[in-house]
C-alpha cells in the first residue's frame, strides 16, 4: 500500500508544481513507483513542467467519469524507470470532480504505486478540498514572504481541520544572500510562526526556470542546487536522515574576483 502526499500552499506561484515534479522524479530515481496527479483542473501545468503535454489523451476527469480506464489515462514518463502522470483536464473546472471521487481515485492508485503525489491548486476552495480528500499526508510549500507564510498558516489550519495532521514544511526560493542581510525572512522565523516540521529548504535557482521551460525536472541536473535540495527532500520522505544543504553562497570578495577573472579567460 502506497502513500498519498498532497503538495499544497494556499498562495499561488510559490512552486507547488515545480516541487511536485521534482520530488516525484527524485522518488522515481530512487527506485520508487510514483504517480503524479495534477488536481489543478482547468489550469493544468504539471504536464508542461514534466514535458509530457503532447502525450495527453485522457485526463483525471475522464477517469472519474468512466470515459476511460485508469490505465489509459496514466502517461508513462519514459525517462524514468517507474513514473507516471495523471493529467488534469483543461476544458473543465474544479467542480468536475468531487472529494469522494478523488478519495476513491487515490485509493485505487495507492494499490499500485509506492507514492501518489498530488499537485494541489492554489486557493482554499473546491480544488483544494478535492486535492486533499484522498491524501495521507501533506507538504506545505511556502516562500520567505509574509504573504506566503500567512497563507501557509491558513492552509495548515484547514489541513488540521480535515484530519491531515503534521504537515511538513518546504521553504522554496530562499536567497541566502538576502537572508544574511536581513532583507528576507529566515527559515527559523517561518518555523517559529508555523510550528511544523521542516522537510527542506530549496534555494532560489535560475536552473529551475530553464528546467521548467524545457520540461525536464531539475533533479536530473547535477549542477542545480535546487535539484539537489529536492533530491534531499525525496530522501527524507524515504526516511533517510539527510543534513540540510549548506546554502552558503557568500564566498567573499577575493574568491568572487578570482572566479570573475578565471571565467573571462
Amino acid at each position: 500500500m502506497g502513500e498519498v502526499i498532497v503538495i499544497t500552499s494556499g498562495k499561488g506561484g510559490v512552486g507547488k508544481t515545480t516541487a511536485t515534479a521534482n520530488i516525484g522524479t527524485a522518488l522515481a530515481v530512487n527506485g520508487k513507483k510514483v504517480v503524479l496527479v495534477d488536481a489543478d483542473i482547468g489550469l493544468r501545468n504539471l504536464d508542461v513542467v514534466m514535458g509530457l503535454e503532447n502525450r495527453i489523451v485522457y485526463d483525471v476527469v475522464d477517469v472519474v467519469e468512466g470515459v476511460c480506464r485508469l490505465r489509459q489515462a496514466l502517461i508513462k514518463d519514459k525517462r524514468y524507470p517507474d513514473m507516471f502522470l495523471l493529467p488534469a483536464a483543461q476544458t473543465k473546472d474544479k467542480n468536475a470532480v468531487s472529494p469522494a471521487q478523488m478519495q476513491e481515485l487515490c485509493e485505487r492508485l495507492k494499490q499500485e504505486f509506492d507514492f501518489v503525489i498530488i499537485d494541489c491548486p492554489a486557493g482554499i476552495e473546491q480544488g483544494f478540498k478535492n486535492a486533499i480528500a484522498g491524501a495521507d499526508s501533506a507538504i506545505v510549500v511556502t516562500t520567505p514572504e509574509i504573504s506566503a507564510v500567512r497563507d501557509a498558516d491558513r492552509i495548515i489550519g484547514l489541513l488540521e481541520a480535515s484530519e491531515l495532521r503534521n504537515p511538513k514544511l518546504l521553504v522554496n526560493r530562499v536567497r541566502i544572500d538576502m537572508v544574511k542581510k536581513g532583507d528576507m525572512m529566515n527559515t527559523e522565523d517561518m518555523i517559529d510562526i508555523l510550528a511544523i516540521d521542516l522537510l527542506g529548504v530549496v534555494p532560489d535557482d535560475e536552473s529551475i526556470v530553464v528546467s521548467t521551460n524545457r520540461g525536464e525536472p531539475a533533479v536530473g541536473d547535477n549542477k542545480s542546487m535546487a535539484g539537489k535540495a529536492f533530491n534531499n527532500i525525496a530522501l527524507r520522505i524515504l526516511g533517510n536522515e539527510v543534513p540540510f544543504l549548506d546554502l552558503e553562497v557568500d564566498e567573499g570578495f577575493i574568491l568572487k574576483l578570482i572566479r570573475l577573472i578565471s571565467n573571462k579567460k
Binding site: 500567512r150 497563507d151 498558516d153 491558513r154 495548515i156 489550519g157 484547514l158 488540521e160 510562526i193 510550528a195
Partner: peptide, 23 residues
C-alpha cells in the same frame, strides 16, 4: 494553536494553550 482564518468567540474568558497567529 489558532492559525490564520480561525476564530474563537466566547462570552467568558479565553485561554489559548498555543499561539494565536496573525490572521
Amino acid at each position: 494553536t489558532l492559525r490564520s482564518g480561525q476564530k474563537v468567540s466566547y462570552e467568558g474568558n479565553v485561554v489559548v494553550m498555543g499561539d494565536v497567529n496573525a490572521g
